[in-house]
Computed example of a mutant assay.
Amino acid sequence: MGHVAFGLLFALPAWFVWNDRASVVFVAFAAVASLFPDIDLWLVKLFPGQVHHHGVTHTVLFVTVASLVSAAVLAALFTGRIDEWIESERFDRSQLFVFSFLGLLAGGLSHVFADMLSAPDLSTPIEPLWPLVDGSWGIDVVWYNASWINVGFLTVMVVVHVSIAYLTTSPDHRHRLLPL
């Protein structure tokens, strides 16, 4: 819940850049990608002793590469199809690639950032800047499994998103930064 809440936090600018449906897609990309670095929890089971939690999948490098590859796949699969659903926004392949990449990157980086704030109490330290910087980075601000914080933060982010969506999509209250 905490990772999805951070994904929603990092996706907030979408409401001020794209129209309502495009913003929903961007927020969905970020929310899904906010869980992706924890793929190492599955990889640990497949490759015991070779992979560990908070390892390579919790780095800026991994998140960036995974976002690039996933955005390329999404752009190849959905160019020309997504325009019907999004309506007023039109994405060619390169625009859809950048849009997808930014949404996925926002979600993935939100996960890494959230773990930097909470991971040292239950798990191995996180090394987000590996291989450029060797060593862990983190501040033990929040207890990792504090469900009241995770539920509370997720609730706040959902309320904030719904409120901003209402304010930015109402015909009388268009507050987009970029006129697309």
Rank of each mutant, 00 (worst) to 15 (best):
V160Q: 04
F10K: 00
R93I: 12
V112C: 09
V56G: 09
P128H: 04
S123H: 13
T168E: 02
W130M: 03
H175Q: 13
L9N: 00
Y166C: 08
P120F: 14
L8Q: 04
Y166H: 12
D20N: 07
D38M: 11
V51F: 08
R93F: 15
L167W: 14
G135R: 04
F36E: 05
D20M: 05
G49S: 04
L180Y: 12
L129I: 06
P120H: 13
S94Q: 11
L41E: 12
V25H: 03
I149Y: 12
L177E: 02
T79I: 02
F62P: 14
M116L: 05
A33I: 13
L154M: 14
S34I: 05
D83I: 03
F36W: 12
A106C: 10
F113V: 15
V27G: 02
F16P: 00
V17A: 00
D115F: 00
L177Y: 03
S23C: 01
F101Q: 07
R21G: 07
L61K: 09
A31F: 07
D40C: 03
H175D: 03
A28Q: 12
S170E: 10
D121G: 07
D83W: 01
A165E: 06
I86S: 03
A75T: 08
T64P: 14
A76N: 07
L109F: 12
K45F: 08
H58V: 10
A106M: 08
V60P: 10
I164A: 01
